[in-house]
Amino acid sequence: MARAGAALLALALLYPLSALFARIGAWQWSAQVREPALASVRVSLVLTAIAMVIVVVLGTPMAAYIARCGAKERLVWQAALLVPILLPPLALGILFTLAFGPFGGIGRLLQHYGVAMTNNAPAFVATQVYVAMGYYVLGAVAALDAVPSMLQKQAALLGLTPTRVFFRVTLPLARLGLAVALSIAWVRAVGEFGAVVVTAYYPSGMPVQLWVDLQSYGLPAVMPLLVIFLAVALPLPWLAHVLAQRRSHA
């Protein structure tokens, strides 16, 4: 009975994917649709990849630090990281534009040096970093927490400095958890619409282009890009999660 209920719920959750086969007429993939669509794929992949590098490079040391913190200090860091996660995306986009535009302190400084933080690649990447960082760091903290501290202490007693312990013991044992954290960050960033549409309408990534196509040409013009979008966003995180689950049950 319970299994049947679970199966029913799982099917209900997967049901929207069946719309990929909906009879909405021939999909439109004319040059008018195709060229901006492919450009948006390039924008999303390249700029999200850059954002992920920044997230990993800055977020991993922070996660390693938080994982070593006492409970009270950890709460402070986690509370701070939750803010960009909990902010409604549109609100985040507006706040970001104001803070990094002429009305914000850093924005004025950037403008002084001729750097505009709106409707360009840096604004796109920075927005994605803001959107994804909290997810990655909190996930990475959980992954690093899962490594038994006694293994790290034992490695230190065997003569390894803290840095070498991190790279030879902590990181290898946490790698799958870190991959899951990164995959969540990736999905969150590559699929971000609400904040990006405010901060970086141009260069248009896939979510913004999907919205533009939907408004301009209707559903048949959206479907090809939607398939590409799902193919780019879903498989890697899905695989990371499945592997992590398999390992935790092994």
Binding site: M150, Q154, R168, V169
Partner: peptide, 28 residues
Amino acid sequence: LHRRSIGYLTQEPSLFPHLSVRDNITFG
């Protein structure tokens, strides 16, 4: 800890599960 040069063995031998037996023994 890494400057102590002592051996410490507990009920849980705390082997590094991602390494072989050989690499555990030569670890460090």
